[in-house]
Computed example of a mutant assay.
Amino acid sequence: MATPCAAATADHESLDRLLAGGPRHVLLDSTRTGGQLAMSRLAAPAGTASSVHPHAGEDEIFVMMRGSGIFWAGDQRFELGEGGVAFLPCGVPHGYRITSDADLLALSTPGSPGLAPYAAGADQHETLEWLDGGLVRILLSEERTGGRLSLFRSTAPAGSASPVYVHGKEDEIVVMLSGSGIYWVGEHRYELSAGGMVFVPRGVTTAHRITTDAEKLTVTTPGGLEAFLRKVCRDVSQPRPAGWRISFDAMVRAAEATGQTILVAPLQADDASSAPLVAA
């Protein structure tokens, strides 16, 4: 089984400049995930551009955190601004040009031949209401990635907290884009702030509590967690029923229907670990 880990911004490995851009900070090395996922964050000033090239064995994903750029994939051309995502599958020639100073997250995963390129702007993502009024945007579903991963961007108000749960088949990676929170992973307790990352291997008890208003990027590999979210959350494109909220029982039922396991109610900030409560 993979080992849980977490890192603050200052702990990320910094690599040399990428093309004409700024440094690349390694958030998660593929050795941590058994080769299933690597993630880095990079700064790219306007004018940064790559050659057109294919990847023989990996799919590549870019999330535009700030700025804008043009991406080419095969015979398609995508213009992305802040909040946009581009999925560039293996075997498809692709390239990009940054049109205004940008901050990007770059992910790579073993390739799934035959998949189609995909891109979406910030206003095109399926959006769900989650705990305490937080929002989850589905940037990439398992259908888009051949089941390799799912990708979400979410907001969470201070005080919101998850129950203690276990992913039976997925590893979960969370990047704290802004704000702060406490993450319990098995026997570990991590305090994350902006730029921090936590890796939760499948089969390990976990929970979190947000301590200041936060925005997060979450990856699950393999994909499919959106099936749970769609069952328990509210599609914001539909009218909001009076008094609507997510109950613990509703989460348990949705988890049972989608192969997840929810164990106990949320932890308090001073709890040291999720494991003793589960064992009890």
Rank of each mutant, 00 (worst) to 15 (best):
A255W: 08
G159V: 02
S180K: 08
E13M: 11
A265P: 11
S14Y: 11
T127C: 11
I246P: 00
V278K: 13
G114N: 13
V219N: 05
L80W: 09
A44Y: 01
I173N: 00
L263M: 11
S108A: 15
K231Q: 12
A46G: 12
V278E: 10
G159E: 01
P157W: 09
V136G: 03
G22C: 02
R17V: 10
A250W: 05
C90D: 13
G83S: 06
A250K: 15
P241T: 11
D103N: 12
A116F: 04
S154N: 10
S40C: 12
E215Q: 12
G121C: 09
M39A: 12
S193V: 13
H25I: 00
Q268F: 11
P4C: 02
A250S: 14
T211Y: 03
I246L: 06
F152M: 08
R209S: 08
Y190P: 04
W184T: 00
A272D: 14
W184P: 04
V52Y: 07
R189E: 00
A10V: 13
L18P: 06
A272P: 08
S237F: 05
S108T: 15
T155H: 10
G196A: 14
F78Q: 02
T220L: 07
A214S: 14
T145Y: 05
E126Q: 13
L80E: 00
G114Y: 11
L80G: 00
G203W: 09
